Simulated scan of single mutants.
Amino acid sequence: MKLATFEKTTPIGAVRRIGVVHGDQIIDLNFAYALYLTEQNDPRPYEMAGLIVPPDMIRFFEGGTASKAAATTVVAWVVERLADKVTITGARGETIVHALDEVKLLAPVPEPTNVFATMNSDRHMLNGLEKFGLGLPKAWHDTPAVYRSTNSGVAGSEDPILWPSYTEQLDYELECGIYIGKRGMNIPVERASEYIAAYTIYNDVSARDVLKKEISLYTGPAKGKCFANSNLMGPWAVTPDEVDPSNMRMVARINGEVWSEGNLNDIHWSFPQLIAHISKDEMLRPGDFISGGCIAFGSGLELDRWIQPGDVVELEIEGIGVLRNRVERRRGLDGVE
C-alpha cells in the first residue's frame, strides 16, 4: 500500500487525514472503514473505525497488524466498487475518494517523534570528506554513523526548499528512509525487519559551507542540516510487501536533468542493522524515522554542482515514486508563533 497523509480544505479549514493512494486517487481510510462497517451492520461504525483505522499515521502504525489488515480489506472493497462504477459516499455524507490533485500531500508522518539520519555509503562518505580534506574515520566500518536531526523541519512533496539565510551552498541528498511500526528496545537484527512499517523518499537538504565549519569543531550536524523544510519526505510511504530494498534504483533530477543515479544497495549498513544499533537501550516508537543515508554521488557536493533558487529538485526511487520540491529564497520577516 502507498500510505499518505493529506490535507483537504473544508468550510471550517484544512483537515488532516490519512489514506491509500490508488492511481490518481486517494482513499480516505478512516471514512472508508466506517462506511464498510456501516454496511456490515456494525452498531458503532465510526467509533470502531476510529479505533482500528484512525485518521492519523502514527496511531495507524500503533494499530499494528490489525490496522493494516483492516486497511487492506477496505481498500480492496473500495477498489471493487470503483471498478463497478458504484458511487461511494459516507453514511454521513463524507467524501471517501479524492482526486490527488484536490488534496495537499504532507510528509507521510508530518511530526515524527525522532528523526535519525545516517552517513552510510563508503563512496559518498569518501567523496564528501575528500572535499573537506579529510579521510574515513578508523571506526567507520565498526559502528553506524547515526545522528539525530530536527523533527520540526519535516515537510512533504511540493513544499518549498527554503534557502537558509546563513548559507551560500545549499545541497540535496538522495536517500531512502523507513518508518518504525511498533515499539521496541534492544531489537535483534534478525527480527528488525518486523519493525519496519513503510519506506519513503528522503531529501536531507544540507548547507554545505556551514556543515564544513561544524565538522571542524568536532560537533555533529546542526545548522548545516537543521532548518525549516530541511527534512523532506514523501510523497507517500510504501509498505514493505511492495518494495525490494536490496535492489531499488534511485535518481535525482534538477530541472529535469539527471544529476545523480544509483541504487539503494549502495548503503553499507542495512535497515535491520540500523534498527538494531539505534534501539540499543533506547525505545523506538511508531512513526520514528530512520534514513538509510545518501548513496554514492547522490549529492551536489560530490559533483561540484549546486542547486539554486528556482530549481526544481526531483528524487525518484523505484517502487515508491517521486519527491518533488522547488528551491525558494525566504521572503519577509519570520515571526514567533
Rank of each mutant, 00 (worst) to 15 (best):
H141R: 13
E328P: 01
D142P: 10
G332V: 11
R183W: 02
A252H: 00
V78G: 03
F132C: 12
P108K: 06
S121V: 08
R123E: 12
E242M: 12
L211F: 06
K131H: 07
V115N: 05
D56R: 06
D24E: 12
R329W: 04
G300C: 13
N127R: 12
L129P: 02
V313Y: 00
D84S: 05
I278D: 03
S121L: 13
A70Q: 14
M119R: 10
G156L: 03
Q40L: 12
A49P: 13
A296F: 02
S193V: 00
W140E: 02
G93R: 03
E158S: 10
V53P: 07
N255M: 13
M125C: 14
D84Y: 00
A197T: 10
I267H: 04
D304K: 04
P272G: 03
G135C: 01
V21G: 08
Y195D: 07
R148V: 13
I201L: 02
R330L: 11
K280Y: 05
I18G: 15
S152G: 02
Q25G: 00
T200Q: 07
M250V: 09
A117V: 12
N127Y: 01
L323V: 02
V189P: 11
W259Q: 02
P164M: 01
H22M: 00
G181K: 14
V154H: 09
G262Y: 07
A192H: 03
F271H: 00
V20R: 09
L51D: 09
I295M: 03
V109R: 12
Y195P: 01
S230T: 05
E111Q: 13
E39G: 06
R324G: 02
E302W: 00
T95Q: 13
E316A: 08
V251R: 10
F289I: 01
G93Q: 10
E80Y: 09
R208M: 13
A207F: 06
N30Q: 08
E242R: 14
Y199P: 15
D142H: 14
N30R: 04
G181I: 12
L264E: 03
G63N: 03
L217T: 12
I215G: 10
I254D: 02
N325H: 06
T167G: 02
I320T: 04
K223I: 11
V103P: 10
P45E: 06
T72I: 07
A237Q: 12
S270W: 05
W163P: 04
L217C: 11
N255R: 15
S152I: 07
